[in-house]
Amino acid sequence: MAHRSRLAGFIIDCRTDDLDAAADFWSQALGMSISDREAGDGSAEYQMFGDTPGDLHVEVQKVTHESRVHLDIETDDIDAEAARLEALGAKKIAFHKRWWVMEAPTGQRFCVVRMKHPERGAPPREWND
């Protein structure tokens, strides 16, 4: 069965006690507005940007690990996409509620998340499983 995926956007992971200040810095640095300061859920604190290029999802997230930037790949089948990426050499690191944290063969971490708005942005690529 086929599934679809595409780049969803970028998450700026910030180890900070002041998420508002971190989001304000990145908002001004990138020239994007903060569209939702309360975008997080019970398991994560993050703030979402608006006015992003190509409708990419860009957010600032409070984390306990070292600060870094990671990307999200969105898909209509999380397990199929994770398996496709494993076949390319990626490793599954952990499953969190509804997404996979994975690691590229070169060490970068990224997440495989559920596609929210397939009708927006660039069309997703279809993969034959």
Rank of each mutant, 00 (worst) to 15 (best):
E86L: 04
T75L: 01
E103T: 10
M115Y: 04
S27W: 00
E66F: 08
V60W: 13
E74R: 05
K97T: 08
Y46L: 14
T106L: 02
W100T: 07
H117Q: 06
E66Q: 08
A82M: 07
D76H: 11
D76I: 05
D13T: 01
A23R: 09
E45N: 10
Q61K: 14
D129T: 12
K62D: 05
F95Q: 11
G50V: 08
E126Q: 14
L85N: 02
V101G: 00
A8L: 12
C111P: 07
Q47N: 02
W127Q: 08
L19M: 09
S43F: 13
R37L: 07
Y46H: 15
A104E: 14
V63H: 03
A29C: 06
K97Y: 14
V113T: 15
D76Y: 12
F25G: 09
V58C: 15
Q108M: 06
R4F: 01
A21R: 13
F10W: 13
D18R: 01
E74N: 02
G121T: 03
I12K: 05
L71P: 05
R125L: 12
V113Y: 07
R120G: 00
W26S: 10
I93H: 05
P123R: 06
E126R: 02
A104I: 02
Q28N: 15
K91L: 08
H70K: 13
R109G: 00
L56T: 06
M115F: 09
S33P: 10
A87L: 08
E81L: 07
K97I: 11
A82V: 07
V58K: 02
L30K: 08
H70G: 04
C111D: 12
T75R: 03
A80K: 10
F10K: 01
W100N: 06
G107F: 09
V101C: 08
Q61H: 10
A80S: 12
K92M: 05
I78D: 04
S67Q: 04
A22D: 13
F25K: 10
H96P: 02
L30R: 03
V63F: 01
G89F: 03
K91C: 05
I12L: 14
E45H: 14
D17A: 15
M1A: 11
D20S: 13
D79W: 11
